[in-house]
Nucleic acid binder design. Structure first.
Length: 264
DNA sequence: ATGGCCGTTTTGAACGGA
């Protein structure tokens, strides 16, 4: 089963690109972020025509996440627990073939020293609580999305350009590590610990794509029982190099079928 | 040199993004 995540920066602006990537990336499950549209404006029919089921958590103009899957999306949950007053559409989860998958659009948090940065850190507290809850069953879990965190210096073309940014603050990175210490594995770094310039985002400005001035902020975090089944993982840079591209590009991983009996 | 991009919105200057 292939799991993938992509911040499309408006699903309406990126519909052709999304349809193209479904054909070439062949994800079984795709977590989408930054839809920038309400539920009814999501191009549901186009996804369904390609054989995908759809769950949308939309919002006007900003944010918005979705899960699309060839297999049924069971027991969907929209929204992240812990703050009933939070109206931003940044989280949706469901079960596909026994794997609990989530599409996550973690707050940007800029500028630091403001309520926006506090909101980011508080949101990460809530995410960690939910992530811990999901591990209790021992089943496979995949947290996928735009985490808006640069985990380590090697995940950035030039750390000096990001030291004042919310994505590289010590607090943001510590929160990301705390999430991992619960028992989640960064799918890409676990398989490719020394891969250089493994970026998922390049700014539209300043020729960042042409210079490969990128950062790795889109992640797939897998529980132990999920990463134990992982056979491949990669970042697909092709969509970023095309006209009218999102500033993010997809990341994906493959999971082998669940063993029907213990293998040891 | 994030001054220089992109998408969105009570459509036209402002906001959010990262």
């Amino acid at each position: 089963m292939r799991l993938a995540s992509w911040n499309v920066n408006s699903i309406k602006a990126r519909l052709d690109a999304a349809m193209t990537w479904l054909d070439e990336g062949k994800p079984d499950v795709l977590a989408l972020q930054e839809l920038k549209c309400v539920d009814d404006a999501f191009p549901r029919l186009e996804f369904e025509a390609k054989g995908y089921n759809v769950i949308v958590a939309g919002q006007k103009s900003y944010n918005g996440v979705a899960l699309v899957s060839r297999l049924p999306l069971e027991n969907p949950v929209i929204g992240l627990a812990g703050d009933a007053s939070d109206e931003q559409a940044r989280y949706v989860e469901a079960t596909v073939a026994g794997v609990r998958v989530a599409s996550i659009y973690l707050p940007n948090g800029n500028p630091i020293g403001t309520e926006k940065f506090n909101y980011k850190l508080a949101w990460m507290d809530r995410l960690r609580a939910r992530a811990a809850e999901l591990l209790k069953s021992g089943g496979a879990v995949a947290l996928m999305g735009d985490f808006n965190v640069i985990p380590k210096p090697e995940d950035c073309y030039d750390v000096s350009a990001w030291v004042e940014d919310a994505l590289y603050q010590p607090e943001s990175r510590a929160q990301f590590r705390a999430l991992c210490w619960l028992g989640y594995y960064d799918a890409f770094r676990t398989a490719k610990p020394h891969a250089p310039a493994a970026y998922t985002f390049w700014d539209y400005q300043g020729g960042a794509w042409q210079k490969d001035n990128g950062i790795r902020i889109d992640h797939i975090l897998l529980s132990a029982s999920a990463i134990d089944r992982m056979t491949d993982v990669d970042i697909d840079r092709r969509p970023r190099g095309r006209p009218k591209a999102s500033d993010h590009t997809p990341i994906w991983c493959d999971l082998a079928d669940a063993p029907t009996a213990p293998r040891l």
